[in-house]
Amino acid sequence: MTTDSGTPPTGPKASLALIDDVLALPFPAGEESEDSGVRSSGPGHHLLIVRAGQDFWDDASTETVEASEDEIEAEFSAVATALTERWGEPETVDLWPYLAEEASPVPEPLGQLSNLAGSMQLWRPPADAPGAGGRWLGLTVGQADPEFPIWLLAAVGDASTLPV
């Protein structure tokens, strides 16, 4: 989907459409994994970069970083509000404990998310939501490294990948 100028649409409606698409997307079979650079998928999960700010390789000034943070946070807020209107109040999931977990493997996408963000908002869509039966949806803002863009991330996981 592109605009008349050939660029992908942006804004909360476009972000929600991307989230709806990944929520309905089947998980890869078996131990198969996929990574397109924008979406990674594996058994029982998808992780999507919904929106990326600019990178900070050439300009990491406070003003530039804050402007990018504000832009991504505004998108997060608008998308989170729309998801809350659909499915009710989200749960806040602390991701830090998954980062420190060394004794046993961390289920994905929680392992990836814990390297990018400290917490996420989590919704458990009702079973009758299109494509969402038995899945959870997480939304967070994260960054891989100070020079990298700030990302609005959506994670979809099979209910069994989220500890109770």
Rank of each mutant, 00 (worst) to 15 (best):
A103M: 14
P43N: 02
N115H: 05
D128G: 12
P105L: 09
W57C: 06
W136K: 10
R86Y: 12
D128S: 14
S119Y: 12
P43M: 02
E89Y: 07
D145V: 03
T92C: 06
V141E: 01
R39I: 08
P12I: 07
S40Q: 12
L95W: 13
A117M: 03
H46W: 01
W151L: 07
I72Q: 01
P125A: 10
V106S: 07
P109D: 01
E102S: 15
I49D: 00
P9R: 11
P90E: 05
A154M: 09
P28R: 00
K13L: 15
P26S: 08
A127E: 13
E34T: 04
V50S: 01
Q112P: 06
A14L: 01
T7M: 11
A155P: 07
R135V: 04
S104W: 15
Q121R: 09
T64L: 09
D21A: 10
E85T: 05
P107A: 01
G88N: 12
H45L: 08
Q54I: 06
L99S: 15
G44A: 06
A82G: 01
W87F: 09
G11A: 11
L25Y: 02
R51Q: 15
G133T: 14
P43C: 04
A129Y: 07
V156T: 09
A29I: 06
L110I: 11
G157M: 10
A67E: 09
L139E: 02
A82V: 00
V141F: 02
H46A: 04
T10F: 10
L48K: 02
L122R: 15
G118R: 01
P9A: 12
